[in-house]
Design a protein around this nucleic acid. Sequence first.
DNA 1: TCAGGTACTGACCGATCGGTCAGGCATGCT
DNA 2: AGCATGCCTGACCGATCGGTCAGTACCTGA
Lengths: 181, 181
Amino acid sequence: MARPTPETHAELLAAAARRFAVTGYKGTSLQDIAREVGCSKAAVLYHFANKEALLRELMAPAIAVLEALDARLAGHTGAAAQRVAAEGFVDLAVRFRREIALLRGEFPDLLQQPAFAHVQQVSERLIDAFAGHSDRPAARIAALVVLAGIAETCGEFLDIPDEELRPALLAVALRALEPTT
Amino acid sequence: MARPTPETHAELLAAAARRFAVTGYKGTSLQDIAREVGCSKAAVLYHFANKEALLRELMAPAIAVLEALDARLAGHTGAAAQRVAAEGFVDLAVRFRREIALLRGEFPDLLQQPAFAHVQQVSERLIDAFAGHSDRPAARIAALVVLAGIAETCGEFLDIPDEELRPALLAVALRALEPTT
DNA sequence: TCAGGTACTGACCGATCGGTCAGGCATGCT
DNA sequence: AGCATGCCTGACCGATCGGTCAGTACCTGA
């Protein structure tokens, strides 16, 4: 089974993304990933220090975009913040839907790992922006429904093009976030 | 550590609910549950045939209510179906928020087990009702955002009373499901 | 020609998983 | 007194987990 392919690193990353999306992070073993690529489990751990490092590398691009959105958010308040947050997050969710989908509810668990501690804070600021920086429970509830709903949904529509998914998600987000009279 | 408590069954159920809600189904071991109650792992498996049976018994009341909603859904179409589905699902989510929360994204995995196969079909009919029985992608996207958003959100507000959470969730659901002009 | 790095393997490790099993200890019926 | 039953235990099982390690085949530059 010895096959000298230097692109293995990228192949492993892609295989991990596929497996994580189906069976989740905890539900996928290094064996599973190795089998999909056709190499040994030891080869996986040659390319990545450990399982968490694999996940970290997989999520890095998405996290970078999330942090850019966070930075952009700082300059806005109220309804403007809502619109920037909705547009930015929908765009992120659509572009990285595969990466987001693979965390399928393991978010709470994974975010507690030190490697993702910062993401935790960023998403709290995102919810705050979705809520228009309001403390009203109704606003915070709506914010969380939109955030979680989009995150869970985007991964279910892997087959339709970005240009169709993006406006549909944005429309439902903006409707849901409309202020209660 | 021998303590003859015949209420152990109920205690185990409650402990399992608590642990599942924090670390998820896969992330919680029978040891964890046993430790929380103060008995042995073998005692857990004396009361429940296996881990899945424990989960099944834990979810049974919520599933019964879900199936009742499904039956009620059959008599409605279009906007009426949307309203019945939204009201019914929000009520279910609020009442059983702890049970729903503990499945944290493990839904896709768990629903594939034969014991929950029926729930899969019911939730597809629910999404269909949310979408007003429309085939338009935008309608189906909105439906999934609402369903997933509510399911994920309700478990995050364990401390506020039903009477406050219910109308807030219903309001955001109805706003999000408003037909696009 | 050969040293050294890259990419990998199979064997192995301790821990933990869900689950089994024989037995023990109260309690209550006969 | 004897025996069944309900409830529970500690010891144990095979499987699988993430991770380590010594060794090896191959390529490259000196």
